[in-house]
Amino acid sequence: MTLNVHTWIGIAAFLGGGLAMGLGAIGAAIGEGYTAAQANYALSRDPKSAGDLFKTMLVGQAIAESASIFALVIAMILLFSDFSSGSLVTASAIMAAGLSMGFGAVGSGVGSGFPAAAACTGMARQPAMGARLTTNMLVGSAVCQTPSIFALVTSFILIFTDFSKAPVNPAWAAVMGAGLAAGLAAIGSGIGGGVVAQASSEGIARNPDSQKQVTNVMLLGQAITQTPAILGLLISFILIFKQFEATDALAPGIALLASGLCMGIGAIGPGIGEGIASSGGVRWIAKSPSFAGELTRTMLVGMAVAESTAIYSMVIALALIFVV
């Protein structure tokens, strides 16, 4: 049995499409289920606002759904596109595109469910604040989607870039590393951003007067929580667009693959941790807005320290690309 380039590209496209949709379904399903559970809890507390709660739950779930719709789009493109003009690098790139979008949708799906759930429980507590809570939920869960959009962009670049002139070794490993870096790095920032937005929705329900301050600090916290995903995107762009010299040895390719894995996995923890750190700040600014200065300062210092391990991962990833 001989496997030619066409066969490998077909294998990669179908496997990549399946993985994109399979992995991509995890996050949105968990996030939406959590939202529905909290909406039921809210409904039992305040059955009179059933209509508003139902609407808020559906809007929140629709936003959480978008991450898995991105995965569906990528899976469809992989299943029905014609990649026959490609090389073995193309096979690796489309597989990487599927993995990137699949992993990338997990965090945003889970994360977007948190603010929607908190908006539902908050609405049962303070039905009059429905509009403020909905605004905050929409802003918070929209920001949660950015890591999955990074993964989507990486997938599109991997699918539509022409790799036919790139040397098969080590370019196959570079594109695979690029997909893994962007996809895995999106998990942490997606979940972390959701934790921040959840704290802010809860805080506004407890103390509606603090809404302006709380939404501002939430956006600050979410923006910083995105940084690990941005580092992943940076490493993946370097891996895609840098020209590598052809080689016969295995080690240079594996170094590029390891670089992507290192940055991708290494960004998960800091992303979630920064989200937790920022949620503490946001929650207590809502309770005591007069101490917003001290709280924001400690929150930012704490987030900066939590970022450090993502920076170590980036250093090792860059060393794997440029030094060894």
């Binding site: 998960i268 941790g273 503490g280 450090s308 090792i316």
Partner: peptide, 30 residues
């Protein structure tokens, strides 16, 4: 090379989450 990448990648998860929890509790205490 693969070991180096996996070592730093996996090793970054715990401290990231743990430091975040410490910062959240510090904000609560403040």
């Amino acid at each position: 090379f693969l070991g180096a990448g996996i070592s730093m990648g996996l090793g970054a998860i715990g401290p990231g989450v743990g430091e975040g929890m410490a910062a959240a509790k510090a904000c609560e205490a403040i």
